[in-house]
């Protein structure tokens, strides 16, 4: 699969791919093929699809612990992403990065990142690099509502605005930071964070890929023109658990009624309704076929050799540390 495209069918293909990828991945967590669980992106697909459809292949993104959707929408090979989740040597990071660290530099994916907010300054640096290399590439930082309370995110907003860098700050407000509702975590507003730094900030419907795409296009245009960063708050609902561990832990921080009503605005349904039945069925079949191959590829891959743990620790060759007796 390639990067999300901005056509009606293209956007549907991406949201559908992400949805079914995550459902397949959850199945593989249940079977024990993915060890350590995942943070499913289910319900937020429109955000990755809409933003990445507004980008070029040579633009770059950084992502989060809930990053599969971003990585897929930016064009990473689903088979290699899934192999990474399954910890195989054929994975994007050769099975050493895992679900929260998928990276594909060739596709402009500078890495998912498990430390909430920590990807933001890296995006600022990538944007600085683009500007000073004479390129009009833009850099996108995806982050959640939890990240808006991290100091490093505010530092990054400041630096990007101060230096008028081509950054899109894309906040995925899915209502919860792990289990803490936004209302109990965020003083002020999320767009207020951006506005405080003079960054144009908007709130859009994060369940609708077209709404996200429209906002992202405006932000990308600004960034490429040298007019600096933008912030887009995308309102969405996390359909699944914070982490698959929750499937067993049954944490009960959301009522069944809330989850039911939250799932009513479904990005896959919303974009799917814009396609004729036959069109949609054709895309669904293509996605299923892609994912059948992806699962087969992932599970056929060899496991990494534990003896190679030090192979890529340092570029400069020296065997770095003797450690104690093991």
């Amino acid at each position: 699969m390639a990067r999300a495209t901005d056509t009606r069918v293209g956007l549907y293909r991406t949201v559908r791919l992400i949805r079914r990828f995550e459902q397949r991945a959850v199945d593989l967590v249940d079977t024990g093929d993915i060890v350590g669980g995942i943070h499913p992106y289910t319900g937020q697909e429109a955000i990755a699809a809409g933003v990445c459809a507004a980008l070029r292949d040579d633009d770059v993104i950084t992502s989060t612990h809930r990053g599969h959707g971003h990585v897929l929408a930016k064009g990473a090979d689903p088979a290699r992403v899934l192999a990474e989740l399954a910890g195989r040597d054929t994975g994007l990071n050769r099975g050493r990065g895992g679900s929260m660290h998928a990276a594909d530099f060739a596709m402009g994916i500078l890495g998912a990142n498990a430390i909430v907010g920590a990807n933001a300054p890296i995006t600022v640096g990538a944007a600085w690099a683009a500007r000073h290399s004479g390129s009009d590439r833009v850099a996108v930082s995806f982050f959640g509502d939890g990240a808006v309370n991290q100091g490093v995110l505010l530092e990054s907003l400041n630096l990007a605005a101060l230096w008028r860098l081509p950054v899109l700050f894309v906040c995925e407000n899915n209502g919860y930071a792990t289990t803490l509702p936004v209302g109990e975590a965020v003083a002020g507003t999320i767009t207020g964070r951006g506005e405080a730094f003079g960054i144009p900030s908007v709130t859009v419907d994060g369940a609708d890929p077209v709404a996200v795409l429209t906002a992202a296009r405006t932000a990308v245009r600004r960034a490429r023109a040298g007019d600096g960063p933008s912030l887009i708050e995308c309102l969405a609902y996390r359909f699944d658990a914070h982490h698959t561990w929750e499937h067993r832990a049954r944490m009960r921080y959301r009522s069944d009624e809330e989850v039911h009503s939250g799932r009513l605005r479904d990005p896959v349904t919303i974009q799917g309704a814009r396609l004729a039945d036959a069109e949609r069925e054709r895309v669904d079949a293509e996605v299923e076929s892609t994912l059948d191959e992806a699962v087969a590829f992932a599970l056929a891959g060899p496991h990494p050799d534990p003896g190679g743990a030090l192979d890529h620790l340092y570029a400069s060759g020296l065997r770095p540390r003797q450690g104690g007796d093991h």
Binding site: L110, A118, P121, G125, A126, W128, A129, S133
Partner: peptide, 11 residues
């Protein structure tokens, strides 16, 4: 330092 990471991975 975070900005430096972004610069470093971009050359």
């Amino acid at each position: 330092v975070g900005t430096a990471v972004g610069l470093a991975v971009r050359g």
